[in-house]
């Protein structure tokens, strides 16, 4: 490669001295603040009621029974999705890490869908169960999956599986084989080894997978709108709908929802460092 030569006088020394790593952090923080944090805070401002009535009037409305209902549904769907995805994902990660003879091929197949736009994958799941799709052609029924809770959860699992397999696979691969062999040599059976060696040592991967899957599932807009019916709307859908007629109410709902999620992330942060965990991706 050619070497670039730049004379010392290319930049005046006053500029050179000023550009330190700190400056770079400053640029990044300034940009993110302007384009992301300020807009979010602006939403917080818009959720307050400066007209007649209570300052927090919009929150009273946002915490009305119908919306609490949706909030509850959102967390239940996200929880069910997380549990099922974790079980399936752990089995897959375990198989790829310890049992498979072609781990790299399987891993590539797990990661491949990540490169396909999520709307296309939901579209594919829906095509599968549509009237012209193979399931209805073969069985004459969609098994109650289309436009139902089951459809939403199925779509979410299908979309989020890679986010569960990847961190758990990484943490399983990082386990020293000697520890597993030692456990065997010391007389522990297959199951005992899994329970007292492998499971605890892959804990960080499980935490990361839980965090990913839960956050992405709870905030999903497309899964309910493509796979679900009106009775399966989650918070993202309700906020988007509300936005078209009442910005203050939508803002208040967004603040409540984001606040709850961030509290959850904070709790997670207590168990595992989130930025380290996300670095696994």
């Amino acid at each position: 490669m050619r070497t670039v030569k730049i004379s010392d006088s290319f930049l005046p020394s006053s500029v050179r001295k000023r550009v330190t790593p700190r400056t770079l952090v400053g640029i990044g923080v300034l940009w993110l603040t302007l384009c992301f944090i300020v807009p979010i805070v602006f939403l917080l401002y818009e959720s307050l009621n400066f007209g007649e009535g209570h300052l927090l009037a919009n929150y009273e409305q946002a915490l009305a029974w119908t919306y609490i209902n949706v909030l509850g549904r959102t967390f239940v769907y996200a929880l069910v999705t997380t549990i099922l995805t974790l079980i399936l994902g752990y089995l897959t990660a375990y198989y790829i890490a310890f049992k498979s003879s072609r781990p790299m091929v399987l891993l590539a197949l797990v990661l491949l869908p990540l490169w396909v736009a999520i709307i296309i994958r939901f579209f594919g799941v829906r095509l599968f169960f549509l009237q012209s799709g193979p399931v209805q052609q073969l069985f004459g029924t969609d098994f109650g999956i289309l436009f139902s809770r089951n459809g939403v959860v199925l779509g979410l699992i299908s979309a989020l599986l890679p986010f569960a397999v990847l961190p758990m696979y990484n943490s399983l691969r990082a386990i020293d084989d000697d520890l597993i062999n030692a456990s065997r040599t010391l007389g522990a059976g297959q199951f005992q080894t899994l329970r007292s060696v492998i499971l605890p040592l892959s804990f960080s991967g499980i935490v990361a997978a839980t965090l990913f899957v839960f956050i992405l599932a709870a905030g999903s807009y497309l899964a309910p709108s493509i796979m679900g019916g009106p009775a399966n709307n989650m918070m993202a859908n309700i906020i988007a709908d509300t936005q078209s007629y009442s910005i203050p109410l939508a803002s208040a709902m967004a603040v409540v929802f984001t606040g709850l999620l961030l509290i959850l992330v904070g709790l997670f942060n207590h168990f595992a460092n989130v930025s380290e965990v996300l670095g696994d991706l």
């Binding site: 993110l32 384009c35 992301f36 300020v38 807009p39 979010i40 602006f42 939403l43 818009e46 956050i215 709870a218 905030g219 999903s220 807009y221 918070m235 993202a236 906020i239 988007a240 936005q243 910005i247 939508a250 803002s251 967004a254 929802f257 984001t258 999620l261 961030l262 992330v265 996300l278």
Partner: peptide, 16 residues
């Protein structure tokens, strides 16, 4: 930006 729902980010950027 990964953790907050894209619906909320979208509305926030639109409004601001």
């Amino acid at each position: 930006p990964i953790m907050i729902s894209p619906v909320i980010i979208g509305i926030a950027i639109l409004r601001f």
